[in-house]
Write a protein that binds this DNA or RNA. Structure first.
Lengths: 346, 346
DNA sequence: TGTCGGAGTTGAAAGGTTTCAGGTCGCCAG
DNA sequence: CTGGCGACCTGAAACCTTTCAACTCCGACA
């Protein structure tokens, strides 16, 4: 097979210079065709465009960026690209970026600090115009350093103590409260909180919110049973379910509030396979309202977070920071919402 | 608040030149510290490093790329970032890329052709060293054009007619076959195939494989009931379930093979909520073996694809194409595997 | 003493784009 | 015929890095 692609003809990709030569115009004119076509006469423009097509010209973004000093690109460093919650957030960011004519790169830190640091370094070197991140550690000095080096940054779905950048969060304490209030409404007076590890701020907040509601209802604290898990996975939900089932009937809670939907789905699975009815024997509320919650064997009640709005708001804050010289950092907090389904409504 | 970040001091980010000046050395030496530290004496190196730290120097990747002509970056254009299948594929790619010291950018075409085209153009301009993609249309001339312009490309999880790039697929026809063979083993002689639209090659293949097995078992074709859906979603699975339930008992299949797990989960939900027992009244096999399959109310049997290996293999092919001048394009095909769980085993 | 080699350092050139001050040309008003 | 204007086009300079041939020392060796 003979080599005949434009790019292979001479081992070098064609540049504006080659285009200019072939079209018998100057460099500047080619650039004008690219960036201000209205300033070029129709005939010339046509000649240049044909030359580009003939040569298979692809603009070199590095060179443009070098010259222009900006990249029109954002990046989002995700905490876990396999978690539906974060992919939905990413989608929100993407939509906002697309509307503002910005490219978006997604990176995945996979919950690993060093990987996150590598991505951060690389993205700064790429001179992205702005950075969104759900960090492994929201209080890491790395984040402040990024800002100091001149890259605007917005923290997504994590509260942080720093005031040198914007953040977007959801009120987890309120989320815990409304979950419990819903169960109280349904008449439950013995409830389990299932989730962990409590080193994660969000999980603490959800539990604290639950306690607030519980106390205000005047119920004894001992009847809000805390079941600590190692992680938030389906597997851990299963284990927790077995633990509940092992309790003597008098002590067994009639409802469970799970710190996320994966745990709730595990609990649900255990309940059904051991012959319990949901919600008659045990009612279940999850958290996040992922797509699989509605599609579970018993549709799952869940605390919904405005995932996509979260992403969109974060991107909008970043766009403001980049374009508006009077930008002031903000901490935006969204409100969660309870979605009641069969798993609590019977 | 006074502006005091290094970057803000003069509105321009420090360059190697600034570093060189401050460290009292030449440009070349700074570059050596960056790229060949062993060639620089310890004292000088230290001085340069201190200068970098003082100034908050961040290397400009655009300039480096421009000079070097390569970016050490791959990109994967995903078809649907919210589908767990693709995020797992992405993870496989990521691991391979990380091992080869390449950065990876993820983009999401979201199943939209124009968005895909925009990403493609942008990535070519960025001079990524190689491109992985699960395309909206595997036979689009766009892909060939990318290759022609000089960017190596590997198609992931889609068969294509072109031989100008590598591809990695899973044998869908075999997948269909083993699903049906499993159901035949369990004694089923009336089975539904649920999925669509059949314009998608993969779905056709899965159905064709199912037919192969069915025919070879000597069963009448009419007893392999085809239920066409609009898309592969939980919702469509629900609808299909209702359709099956509406059939007279004599005609009703005792098992269903769903073209993906989302459909299977929908069907499962419908079956359970309408009081059927799974698998006694209806056995169910899904496809993809996503994480939620094992965690379903009745753990779901499913045809597993080696998602992560798929990604890894694709990345490795691309790495070979980039580095090895004698590279030859390959079409790699993986073999699926049946994971039998309660939904077919009772 | 003179030569050689090696370690460390230098600085100009190159890479592809955009910008912008300046040029040419044709045409119209005076 | 002259001056001036607008439309269109030109090409050098700048952006920041890496590379590499050339240079300077300095100690070793004959």
């Amino acid at each position: 097979m003979s080599i005949s692609t434009p790019a292979a003809r001479n081992g070098r990709r064609p540049s504006v210079k080659d285009v200019a030569e072939r079209a018998q115009v100057s460099l500047g004119t080619v650039s004008n065709v690219l960036n201000r076509p209205d300033r070029v006469s129709a005939g010339t423009r046509e000649r240049v465009e044909r030359a580009m097509a003939d040569l298979g010209f692809v603009l070199n973004e590095s060179a443009r960026q070098l010259r222009m000093g900006r990249s029109n690109t954002f990046a989002y460093v995700m905490l876990d690209a396999t978690n539906p919650f974060f992919t939905d957030v990413a989608r929100g960011i993407e939509l906002a970026a697309e509307k503002a004519d910005l490219s978006l790169f997604l990176c995945n830190s996979d919950g690993r600090g060093p990987r996150e640091a590598a991505h951060l370094a690389h993205l700064q070197q790429h001179r992205v115009d702005g950075l969104l991140i759900t960090p492994v550690d929201p209080d890491s000095p790395e984040l402040a350093r990024v800002v100091q080096h001149g890259t605007p940054l917005v923290v997504v779905d994590r509260a942080t103590t720093s005031r040198s950048f914007c953040s977007v969060t959801v009120d987890d304490r309120l989320g815990g409260r409304i979950a419990i209030e819903h169960l109280l409404d349904q008449g439950h007076t013995k409830v389990a909180f299932i989730g962990g590890p409590s080193s994660i701020g969000q999980i603490r907040d959800r539990f604290d919110g639950a306690c607030d509601a519980w106390r205000e209802a005047g119920l004894p604290e001992t009847d809000l049973l805390r079941v600590e898990t190692e992680t938030l996975s389906v597997q851990e939900g299963l284990v927790a379910g077995e633990r509940l089932a092992g309790l003597p009937r008098r002590k067994r809670p009639t409802a469970a509030f799970c710190a996320n939907d994966l745990v709730a789905l595990g609990l649900l699975q255990q309940a059904i396979s051991s012959g319990q009815r949901v919600p008659e024997d045990i009612a279940i509320v999850g958290y996040d309202d992922i797509a699989f919650a509605a599609g579970a064997a018993v549709p799952l009640s869940s605390v919904r977070q405005p995932r996509q709005n979260l992403g969109r708001a974060a991107a909008d804050l970043l766009i403001d920071e980049v374009n508006n010289p009077e930008h002031e950092h903000q901490q935006v907090e969204f409100t969660p919402e309870l979605i009641a389904r069969t798993s609590t409504l019977g």
